[in-house]
Design a protein around this nucleic acid. Structure first.
Lengths: 170, 170
DNA sequence: TTGAATATGTTATAACATAACATTATACAC
DNA sequence: GTGTATAATGTTATGTTATAACATATTCAA
């Protein structure tokens, strides 16, 4: 196997497919979230779990007020603060990411590991957003930043384009 | 000169210094903006120039409503739309960038060239924000994205950390 | 069981951005 | 120069995202 082929394999887990078994994604995410909160001794309360579930409805980032609307669709009385607090908790615990370019939130695909070095691919056609997790990219980034004498705390990397499924469909 | 040293030199123009001659930055920016608009046959009208000047007051990204406040400080009556329209024009013409993580705007440091492949270093201490323009980083990014079958349209890369001047001062 | 910490409720408002339509300026064709 | 199309700006209203500030309730451990 060539170096290039190895790198490609390592860097390129599948982009979420339109027809995949998403119930499985959600279930796994919830399971991991429980485990992480248990390990960290933080509490995945009702509202936090509900927000996490809302975020995992799909692989499309969801706005805070969309989550709110879901909650209040059946006559609920949840206030924005409740949603924002839950999102804050979920982000602090590495369960959810904020997508700055969309003012929206998405479930973390790699719960537990290296939560703050995430990169995102955002399909402008279907909205599906995937985490990139590219080691070479992270290395290049670290190096470029260090060359400037800059100390890195966190990063926002959001790539907007067209996902393979939408490309093939067009 | 080694390859590494060459790359470092190429990648690392100076981070804006606290005491630099900023009037020069502003003057140069305005001059280039005039030239670019002339070349593109677009019009750098009064309000657009004023917004550009406001954005170039410093190397710290400025919010749209901050610009608005500057305009209206002397009893003006400019509406938010005017500012947002000017910002849109300036961005379309490659003169200004939006910093998504701050909801703020900054003058483009490399007017004319490759406006949509910009990367930013944001100092969380002083707010100073610099463009990175790292070719190796762009290569790594392009490659990582391509490996996923993703077609890239635009990118948002914002690195939050501490700039060399703030680091040395602490 | 009471006190400290955590979580949630509630109300109000701040901060950022755009829609929709009216008016004015510019340019250029005739 | 006049008409007319396009671009730019003005104006009003509203939409969207996020947080401040303070009250109440729950949890858990000493």
């Amino acid at each position: 196997m060539s170096q290039a082929a190895k790198r490609k394999t390592a860097d390129a887990p599948a982009f979420p497919k339109p027809g995949h078994n998403h119930a499985h994604c959600t279930k796994e995410a919830l399971r991991k979230a429980e485990a992480i909160c248990a390990a960290r001794k933080t509490k995945l309360t009702d509202i936090r779990r509900q927000v996490l579930e809302a975020v995992w409805r799909s692989h499309v980032p969801v706005g805070a007020y969309d989550i709110l609307a879901q909650f209040n669709a059946g006559g609920g009385r949840v206030a924005p603060m409740a949603v924002y607090r839950a999102l804050e908790f979920l982000m602090d615990n590495g369960l959810v990411h904020r997508i700055a370019s969309l003012n929206a939130y998405i479930g973390c695909a790699h719960m537990g590991a290296d939560h703050h070095a995430a990169q995102f691919l955002i399909c402008r056609s279907c909205g599906t957003t995937a985490e990139l997790e590219s080691a070479p990219l992270n290395r290049a980034l670290t190096q470029a930043v260090a060359a400037r004498g800059f100390t890195i705390d966190s990063q926002i990397v959001e790539i907007i384009g067209v996902c393979p499924h939408c490309r093939d469909a067009s």
